[in-house]
C-alpha cells in the first residue's frame, strides 16, 4: 500500500543509465551544469544564509508532494513533477536548485533515474521544466494583465507545458542516442504527458490557490516586478530550441554517433560500421506524424509570439 505512494519511474521521465549514449549524456551534463551553476549563484544572492535550509527542506517537500498522485483517467496516475509549482512559488533559480536536488536524491537514493545520465534528468526536469514553467507563467500573467484568474490560469498552463516540454526533451535525447526513433518517442512521450500534464496542472492550481488563500505574502515573493516579459521570452526560446532540435534528431538518429565511430570511439561487435546512414522510419507510422507534431509545435509558438507582441504593445500604449 505504502509503496504505491513512492514516486517511481512509472512516470517515464527519469531516464535510467544505458538509455542515452555517451555524447548525449555529456552534452546534457554540460547544459545542466551551466544551468544549475547560474541557479546556485543567483538563488544564493537572493536567499543568502537561508539558501541551504530553505532549498533543502523544499526539495524534500517536492519529493513528498510527488507521492500525492491521483487518478486522471483510465488508470493513468497523475504523477506529480512539481517543477511548475517550485518555479512559481520560489522563482526560477531557487526552483531549478530545488528540482535538481530532487532529481539527484531520486537517483542516489532510489535509483529512480541513472547516475551517468543524471545530467539529462537534471536538464529535463530541473532546468528546462522550471524555466519553461516560469516563462509561461509570467507570460500568461502579462497577457491577462493582473486579472484575478491569472494565478490559476497561469499555474495550469505553466504546469502542463512544463511536463510536456520535459517529455519532449526526453524524447529528443532518446532519439539522438538511437534508443528510440523520434517518430515513436515523440508522439508517445508527448501524448502520455499531455494527459499527465492535466493532472499536474490541476494539482498545481489547487496548491497555488490554497497558498494564496492562507499565505498570500508567499506568492508575492516572485511578484510582478521580476521582469515578466523577459522570462516569457526565455521560456519561449527553450521551447523553440527543442522544436528546432527535434527534426535534427529524427532522420539521422545515429548521425553524430557515426562521426564518433569514424574516429574509433564506438564500433559494433561485428566490426562493421553501420550501413550508410539509414532512414529510421517506424513502419506503419508515416513521417507525416512527425511533420504534424512539428507543425503543431511551431503553430503554438507562433500563436504565443503573436500574443506576446499584443501584450507588449498594450503595455507600451498603457505607459
Amino acid at each position: 500500500m505504502l509503496f504505491s505512494g513512492l514516486p517511481s519511474s512509472s512516470e517515464p521521465l527519469h531516464i535510467p543509465d544505458g538509455f542515452l549514449n555517451w555524447w548525449v549524456s555529456l552534452i546534457c551534463w554540460v547544459l545542466a551544469i551551466v544551468g544549475v551553476g547560474i541557479a546556485i549563484r543567483r538563488s544564493g544572492k537572493t536567499l543568502g544564509e537561508r539558501q541551504v535550509p530553505l532549498m533543502g527542506v523544499l526539495a524534500a517537500f517536492i519529493f513528498a508532494a510527488q507521492m500525492l498522485n491521483f487518478t486522471i483517467a483510465g488508470g493513468t496516475s497523475g504523477h506529480f513533477l512539481g517543477a511548475a509549482l517550485a518555479a512559481i512559488l520560489l522563482g526560477p533559480w531557487a526552483g531549478i536548485l530545488t528540482m535538481t536536488t530532487v532529481v539527484a536524491i531520486q537517483a542516489l537514493l532510489f535509483q529512480d533515474g541513472g547516475l551517468v545520465v543524471m545530467g539529462a534528468n537534471v536538464l529535463n526536469m530541473g532546468v528546462v521544466a522550471t524555466l519553461v514553467a516560469y516563462g509561461v507563467y509570467r507570460g500568461v500573467l502579462e497577457l491577462l494583465g493582473g486579472k484575478k484568474w491569472g494565478l490559476p490560469a497561469g499555474g495550469f498552463v505553466a504546469a502542463w507545458v512544463s511536463v510536456v516540454t520535459s517529455a519532449v526533451a526526453c524524447a529528443v535525447e532518446l532519439a539522438f542516442s538511437g534508443t528510440s526513433p523520434l517518430t515513436v518517442a515523440l508522439p508517445a512521450m508527448a501524448g502520455i504527458h499531455a494527459l499527465i500534464g492535466i493532472g499536474e496542472g490541476l494539482i498545481t492550481v489547487g496548491a497555488l490557490l490554497f497558498v494564496a488563500a492562507v499565505r498570500r505574502d508567499l506568492l508575492e515573493v516572485t511578484g510582478p516586478a521580476a521582469g515578466g516579459m523577459r522570462w516569457a521570452i526565455v521560456g519561449l526560446a527553450i521551447a523553440l530550441g527543442l522544436t528546432l532540435l527535434a527534426p535534427l534528431a529524427s532522420p539521422h538518429p545515429d548521425g553524430l554517433e557515426r562521426v564518433a565511430e569514424d574516429h574509433g570511439f564506438i564500433e559494433t561487435a561485428q566490426g562493421a560500421p553501420y550501413e550508410i546512414i539509414p532512414d529510421y522510419v517506424f513502419p506503419g507510422i508515416p513521417n507525416e506524424a512527425l511533420a504534424t507534431i512539428v507543425a503543431g509545435l511551431v503553430g503554438t509558438l507562433i500563436v504565443a509570439g503573436v500574443a506576446f507582441t499584443v501584450a507588449l504593445a498594450r503595455r507600451k500604449a498603457a505607459s
Binding site: V57, L58, F61, A65, L68, L202, G206, A207, L209, V211
Partner: peptide
C-alpha cells in the same frame, strides 16, 4: 476529477506551508 484534484492540490499546498514553516 476536479474535486479530487482540488483535494490533492490542497494537500500539496498545506504540505508546502508546513515545509516553509519547517524551514
Amino acid at each position: 476529477l476536479l474535486w479530487r484534484a482540488r483535494v490533492t492540490g490542497n494537500m500539496a499546498g498545506s504540505l508546502f506551508l508546513r515545509s516553509i514553516e519547517r524551514s
